[in-house]
Amino acid sequence: MSNPNKARGDRWERSVLDFLREVFGRAAIRPRQEGHIDVGDVHLSPWALQLKDEASHNFSGYLNDAEKQAAAAGEPFAAAVVKRRRYSVDRGYVVMTLATFRRATARLRRAEELLLRANSDLFDKHMSENLKENENR
Results as ranks from 00 to 15, higher is better:
62 Y>F: 14
117 R>C: 01
23 V>M: 15
29 I>N: 06
88 S>Y: 07
135 E>D: 07
57 H>V: 08
132 K>T: 07
116 L>W: 08
70 A>W: 14
39 V>S: 02
116 L>I: 04
102 R>N: 08
31 P>E: 03
122 L>A: 14
85 R>W: 00
21 R>L: 09
94 V>G: 07
10 D>R: 11
35 G>W: 08
98 L>G: 11
42 V>S: 04
29 I>A: 12
5 N>F: 13
82 V>C: 08
137 R>G: 09
121 D>K: 10
5 N>I: 04
133 E>S: 14
123 F>S: 14
115 L>F: 07
97 T>I: 07
92 G>K: 05
32 R>L: 11
62 Y>A: 13
36 H>R: 07
95 V>C: 08
63 L>P: 15
62 Y>P: 08
46 P>L: 03
31 P>R: 02
133 E>D: 13
18 D>K: 11
14 R>T: 13
121 D>S: 10
110 R>P: 00
129 E>Y: 01
90 D>E: 13
123 F>D: 13
113 E>F: 06
35 G>N: 09
75 E>F: 14
120 S>L: 00
80 A>E: 14
109 R>Q: 14
2 S>K: 13
129 E>Q: 05
67 E>V: 06
46 P>A: 01
31 P>V: 03
41 D>A: 05
20 L>T: 12
56 S>T: 14
129 E>R: 05
85 R>H: 04
79 A>Q: 11
97 T>H: 03
121 D>R: 08
121 D>H: 08
123 F>P: 09
84 R>W: 12
119 N>W: 01
82 V>T: 09
5 N>E: 13
45 S>I: 01
90 D>N: 11
29 I>K: 14
101 F>E: 15
77 F>R: 06
12 W>L: 01
106 A>V: 02
135 E>S: 01
112 E>P: 00
65 D>M: 13
89 V>T: 15
39 V>F: 00
68 K>G: 11
57 H>R: 10
9 G>F: 01
121 D>G: 04
20 L>A: 11
25 G>Y: 09
61 G>F: 09
73 A>V: 13
30 R>H: 12
46 P>Q: 01
123 F>R: 13
1 M>Q: 13
38 D>N: 15
16 V>K: 02
72 A>I: 11
36 H>K: 06
64 N>Q: 06
2 S>W: 07
120 S>Y: 00
127 M>E: 13
86 R>H: 09
11 R>Y: 03
87 Y>D: 06
53 D>Y: 00
114 L>Q: 08
137 R>A: 11
130 N>L: 08
74 G>N: 12
22 E>W: 03
68 K>P: 05
1 M>S: 15
17 L>E: 04
97 T>W: 03
35 G>Q: 10
27 A>S: 15
113 E>N: 09
12 W>Q: 02
129 E>I: 01
68 K>I: 11
64 N>M: 03
110 R>H: 05
75 E>Q: 15
91 R>S: 14
111 A>F: 04
104 A>E: 05
58 N>P: 02
40 G>I: 10
103 R>G: 00
81 V>E: 01
75 E>A: 10
109 R>G: 03
94 V>H: 05
32 R>V: 14
22 E>N: 10
17 L>P: 07
36 H>E: 05
63 L>H: 12
55 A>N: 02
19 F>Y: 15
10 D>H: 10
127 M>V: 10
35 G>K: 05
21 R>H: 11
3 N>T: 09
28 A>M: 04
84 R>F: 14
15 S>N: 15
111 A>C: 02
90 D>C: 06
